[in-house]
Every structure is written in C-alpha cells, then in structure tokens.
Amino acid sequence: MPMTSRRMLMLAPLGLAVAGGAGFYAMLRGMGTGSYDPRGVPSVLVGRAPPPFVLPPVEAAGLPGFAAAELGGLPAPMLVNFWASWCVPCIIEHPQLMRLAREGVAVWGVNYKDKPQDAAQFLTRHGNPFQRLGADRPGRVAIDWGVYGVPETYLLDRKGIVRWRWPGPVTPEVLEQDIRPLLRRHA
C-alpha cells in the first residue's frame, strides 16, 4: 500500500475525533446561548394553522374566550400564551408579556388546568396582559397544540399561521432576541 494512503488512514481517527469535538462544542455553545435545547421538543405546529378549538372564557376574569377561527385576520402578528397560576416560570415571564401588551402587541392567553378564581387572582396581582383569555381546564386543547408544559408561547403571523414556538418562560433575552425580530419580520 502506498505510503500516502496509509498515512491518511492513520489520520482518519484523528479527523473523526476533531469532527466529533467540533460537534459537541457547538452543542454546548448552543445550550449556553439558548439556541439549542436537547430536551426541547420541536413543535410540529410551526408553519401550520392551529387545530380547530373553542375555548370558553375564564369565569371571573372578565375577558372573552376565543376559537381557532378568530386567530389570524389581525392587523399584526400576535402571541398565544399557555399559562397557569400554579406555574412558577409563568410569574418570571409575566413582566415581558405585560411589556408587549403595553406596546400594543395582541397577547391571547390559554389558561391551562387552572381554577378560574386562582387565574383571576393571578391577573389582579400581577396585571393582565391578555386581550382574550380561554380556559383549557381539561388540557385537551393544549395537547392538540403539542404543548408539553407551561408556559409555552406561540407567535402567529397575520394569516394565523404559527411561525415560532417557545417552550419555557419568555425572558427579557427571548423578548429582545427572538420575539421582536419576529414581530418585525411578520409585521
């Protein structure tokens, strides 16, 4: 066997190790910046319209519920946020939702497996960012959306097509780095 190909064969494991190392480094870096989450379940809803549903209002919250047909047809992209009063990360993300609502972004809420009075109390204490609020006490609409935990936030374009899904709390970084550019792009 000629010397050159033999040397190449000896270098192959090294090359493989370097490629593997680079891959793992990129994964770790992505985990650090939040662009890659190994536990994250990719949403199948991105690029599609949400499945049909009708959500009743949360009693005592004084906000209308909503149905799938009402999503989209708005003058600007909107957010749909799955939350519950018993969910701790929901408290963390709440100021960001309030900020978006103050800026005029339509934020519609789905109250997941919650008691109506608890939900209403949460909104009285922390403020209400929602224009509409549907109650999903059995959690079936959430399953139809592919929700696997609260909070989860979806961004829908003006036609009502899901463009982005964020599992976990909307932090100030998520707001600036993801939501704002998306709102601009789909404006």
Partner: peptide, 8 residues
C-alpha cells in the same frame, strides 16, 4: 405523533 412529532 401528529401533535408531538417524531420526538414522542
């Protein structure tokens, strides 16, 4: 599978 994709 339709709701949660291959991951499920």
């Amino acid at each position: 599978h339709d709701r949660y994709g291959d991951f499920v």
